[in-house]
Simulated assay, not measured.
Amino acid sequence: MNKPNFLLVDGMALLFRAFYATAVTGQFMINSKGLPTNGVQGFIKHMMTAVSRFKPTHVAVCWDMGSTTFRTEMFPQYKANRGEAPVELIPQFELVKEVVEAFDIPNIGIPGFEADDCIGTLARKAPGEVGVSILTGDKDILQLIDDRISVILLQKGYGNYLVHNRESFYIEKGIWPEQMIDLKALMGDPSDNYPGVRGIGEKTAIKLLQQFNNVEGILENLHQLTAGQRKKIEEDLEMLHLSRQLAEIKCDVEVECNLDTAFFKIDRDKVLDKFTEVEFRGLHKLIPAEQEVV
Rank of each mutant, 00 (worst) to 15 (best):
Q143H: 10
P76I: 10
N160T: 14
I119E: 09
R82G: 05
E101D: 15
K156T: 13
F70T: 02
N107V: 03
G112C: 04
G137P: 10
Q143G: 00
S133I: 00
L154N: 12
G112T: 07
P76E: 04
A102V: 00
V151W: 11
L122Q: 07
E88I: 04
Q155R: 15
I145A: 00
A123I: 09
L135P: 02
G128V: 07
E101Y: 01
S67W: 08
I119Y: 05
D138C: 06
K156Y: 11
I105R: 06
S150E: 14
Y161V: 05
D138T: 00
K156I: 13
E101F: 04
C118W: 05
P106D: 04
D116S: 09
I119D: 01
G112L: 03
D116Y: 01
I105E: 03
T72N: 09
V96E: 08
E129S: 14
R71Y: 07
G137Q: 08
E101K: 15
D146P: 12
E84T: 13
K125Q: 15
T72F: 11
Y78N: 07
I108K: 05
G109C: 02
G112I: 05
L89T: 09
P91A: 04
G120R: 00
I134C: 10
R124M: 14
G131R: 13
E101L: 09
L135H: 07
Q77N: 15
E101W: 11
L122D: 11
S133K: 15
I141Q: 13
T69A: 12
E98Y: 02
R82S: 10
E94D: 14
Q77S: 14
A80Q: 02
G112V: 02
G157T: 13
R124A: 12
V99T: 03
M74Q: 14
G112S: 03
N81Q: 12
F93Y: 10
V87F: 13
T68A: 14
Q155E: 15
L95M: 09
Y78H: 06
Q77T: 10
Y161W: 08
P86D: 01
D117Y: 03
G157P: 13
L122S: 06
A85M: 10
L135D: 08
E88C: 00
D116P: 00
K139S: 13
M74S: 08
L89Q: 08
L95D: 03
F103S: 07
I110L: 15
N81R: 02
R148M: 05
V99P: 07
L142N: 08
E129T: 11
L142G: 07
Y158N: 09
G120D: 12
Q92I: 00
G157E: 14
I119P: 02
I108S: 00
T69W: 02
E98Q: 13
I149M: 09
F75K: 06
D146A: 04
G120M: 06
I108Q: 04
I90G: 04
L122N: 04
